[in-house]
Design a protein around this nucleic acid. Structure first.
Length: 292
DNA sequence: TCGCAGGTGGTCG
DNA sequence: CGACCACCTGCG
């Protein structure tokens, strides 16, 4: 398939986008490009400069139609991150510093079911192992989506497939105690009539809190995972997931008690508002960079 | 060896 | 309710 080139990107850095903890299915290549899969498409993305010095995104394995139907939205291209950064940095030198570090971050608009599965797996887990678990799950139970550079890529198994599995089936995936969570959640989704129903019911949620409350009915989905699903799977940019890293950074930078999650979400709601999710990503990327 | 890693569910008080 | 605590697994 062809290579699609999108010129004139701003506020866009592949390292920032794919290494800020929001996704687990992209791999950095030696040349700085990323290969991965989303919505059943396998592509390689690379940022380069055209002859006139304008930054551009090259997507290998992508036609114009796919770019318009999938990748433009996936990469949240319609949003003006420069404007969001100005708002967040205003009167907040700490945030300004964090934005400088992760200046090319964008919130990916990911598939809802894949996001639910991914973040259930992510609980009390580390990133390399999360990636390995998802990889195993897709390779063993998902449909093949395509190849790139000789490597095969598989889709996340559907709720139907996942609901039919047993804990023994999932043993080679090495999910540990999360395996029954996934099976039960898949069954709960089917019982509701599938992801179409779930999406429709979530569409009625007026606030991120309402969306999270709904999501928490699924086995293995607590406050943190629900918030991540709302942000990355529903593009609720006003959701503010609070994990161990965010607690750390808000304690260190805003001097909020590290145990006081309520105070943190209140602070985020008041100071970051509708851009809370984006703010969270800048802070997350920043603190992880400091600690490495 | 044992604690820890993008938490959650169950059980007490 | 809010504070504990066990929990699969792999790595340092």
């Amino acid at each position: 398939m062809a290579k699609y080139i999108y010129k004139g990107i701003k506020d866009f850095d592949l390292d920032h986008i794919f290494d800020c903890g929001q996704c687990f299915r992209w791999t950095r290549q030696d040349n700085g490009s990323y290969t991965g899969i989303a919505f059943g498409r396998v592509v390689n993305m690379q940022v380069s400069s055209s002859e006139d010095g304008i930054h551009q995104l090259e997507i290998d394995g992508c036609c114009e139609e796919d770019f318009n139907n999938i990748w433009y939205d996936y990469l949240d291209m319609a949003r003006d991150y420069g404007a969001v950064k100005d708002i967040l940095a205003e009167g907040d030198p700490v945030m300004a510093k964090a934005i400088e570090t992760g200046t090319g971050i964008r919130i990916l608009r990911q598939d809802l079911w894949e996001t639910i599965v991914s973040f259930i797996i992510s609980q009390n887990n580390n990133i390399p192992r999360i990636k390995g678990c998802i990889e195993n799950l897709c390779r063993l139970f998902g449909e093949k989506a395509g190849e790139y550079d000789g490597a095969e890529y598989y889709n996340i198994p559907s709720p139907e497939v996942m609901a039919s599995l047993t804990a023994d089936d999932l043993a080679p995936v090495r999910l540990g105690y999360r395996a029954p969570y996934l099976i039960e959640t898949a069954r709960q989704v089917l019982a509701k009539g599938g992801m179409e129903t779930v999406s429709a019911e979530l569409g009625a949620a007026a606030t991120p809190d309402e969306a999270c409350e709904y999501l928490r009915q699924f086995q293995g989905v607590g406050p943190k995972v629900a918030s991540c699903i709302a942000l990355f799977g529903l593009a609720r940019l006003d959701a503010f997931p609070i994990d161990v890293w965010v607690r750390r950074v808000m304690n260190r930078l805003y001097e909020i008690d590290e145990k006081d999650v309520k105070a943190m979400s209140a602070y985020a709601r008041e100071n970051f508002g509708e851009n809370g999710g984006i703010a969270q990503q800048y802070l997350f990327y920043y603190i992880r960079g400091l600690d490495e």
